[in-house]
Design a protein around this nucleic acid. Structure first.
Length: 111
DNA sequence: TTACTGACATATA
DNA sequence: ATATATGCCAGTA
């Protein structure tokens, strides 16, 4: 079955749901996995609508620099950071430390 | 309808 | 290395 049948957004949601505990990924990685490496913005936009998808771990999706750019869109202020820290990820000043260590690439992990 | 914005990334200067 | 410009698609004004 071809996942391509689904809409771009749904695929983004699926990948976001597949992100394992204590791992993070980047918009570009997801976009690339979906075949739209240059549509990273859409990934973030999809996350914006993730409010309808509770299973989507939007807080585990960060930009290529490991910077919590989307934290501003979360409820409070440091909710996203605390969630990541709660998973064992070290986050300082909205930036993930040891990003490579926590990075989770769908194209690699999911093949 | 067109124009602008947006949780990014890559290319070029 | 930093700064500026462009692309991607969808939503909102």
């Amino acid at each position: 079955m071809k996942p391509e049948n689904k809409n771009f957004f749904e695929r983004v949601y699926e990948v976001a749901k597949l992100i394992p505990y204590g791992r993070v990924t980047s918009y570009g990685a997801i976009a690339k996995y979906l075949g739209a490496a240059r549509s990273a913005r859409m990934v973030g936009w999809a996350m914006n609508s993730s409010g309808k998808h509770e299973d989507v771990h939007a807080h585990r999706v960060v930009n290529k620099k490991g910077l919590l750019t989307g934290k501003h869109h979360f409820q409070g202020t440091n909710l996203m950071q605390q969630l990541l820290e709660s998973e064992g990820i070290e986050v300082i000043d909205n930036q993930i430390q040891n990003l490579e260590k926590h990075f989770w690439d769908p194209a690699t992990e999911l093949s």
